[in-house]
């Protein structure tokens, strides 16, 4: 476990273990709030904040949390940070807070956060936990931004509030309805999976060719 480099600890959440596309965690905020790119970014940043700080706290006190009540303890710590985010957003960005509605308080029960605490922070040191949390947050941000961006472009002609599609393009209303979220997520996942399968095949072919070369070398050496 400990022989993974620190950079990999961060980067695995961005791509290989992307919380949305690969682990399929946190579907509730992913599908519900991504009607626009800005909503996606705000949601992802709020989640990353909560994830980072609860990971730091939980990994630093992981040895004194009794195993029997660990989930309750995690939830308590997570809820503290969610309350902070909720209050700050209400005070500083009231419009965004209104747009995200109940989904900010619902970060408490986001399985992405609880899952990382249970699977990672409770077993690893503070630095690694913080890097893992940041990586997962980045992956979440990428996923939510791409979903929100695609839905906003097709459903509203704009991205981040700027109109980029011409006026004659008729907005696809379905994209800002829940059905659009499912369609976009499904198609994105299918595309990324096909990419992953392709790279795996390439790696396999590379390994096989290396093996054959090594075998031939061995044969030649043996003959000599």
């Amino acid at each position: 476990m400990k022989n993974i480099s620190l950079i990999k600890e961060y980067s695995k959440g961005v791509w290989k273990n992307n919380p949305v596309f690969i682990q399929v965690l946190g579907m509730c905020p992913t599908l519900a709030v991504t009607v626009s790119a800005i909503n996606g970014i705000a949601m992802a940043l709020a989640t990353t904040f909560v994830l980072l700080f609860s990971s730091i706290i939980i990994s630093s006190i992981r040895k004194i949390i009794p195993a029997q009540v660990r989930i309750a303890a995690y939830i308590l710590i997570i809820a503290t940070f969610v309350t902070i985010v909720d209050l700050v957003m209400k005070a500083q960005f009231p419009e965004l807070s209104k747009a995200l509605g109940p989904y900010i308080p619902l970060i408490v029960v986001n399985c992405l956060i609880l899952g990382r605490q249970e699977a990672f922070s409770s077993k690893n040191g503070v630095l690694r936990s913080a890097l893992d949390a940041l990586g997962m947050g980045t992956g979440f941000l990428i996923a939510l931004f791409s979903l929100g961006g695609i839905r906003e472009i097709l459903g509203n002609r704009t991205i981040l509030g700027l109109q980029i599609m011409p006026d004659f393009f008729e907005p696809w209303l379905i994209m800002i309805l829940p059905a659009g979220a499912f369609l976009t997520l499904g198609l994105l996942m299918a595309y990324l999976n096909s990419l992953a399968i392709k790279t795996k095949k390439k790696e396999k072919a590379l390994l096989v060719s290396k093996f054959i070369i090594a075998k031939n070398k061995f044969k030649i050496e043996a003959e000599i």
């Binding site: 008729e170 696809w172 209303l173 379905i174 309805l177």
Partner: peptide
């Protein structure tokens, strides 16, 4: 069904 949801007016 997709068109119905995407362009409900048209």
């Amino acid at each position: 069904a997709f068109l119905q949801a995407a362009f409900p007016v048209n």
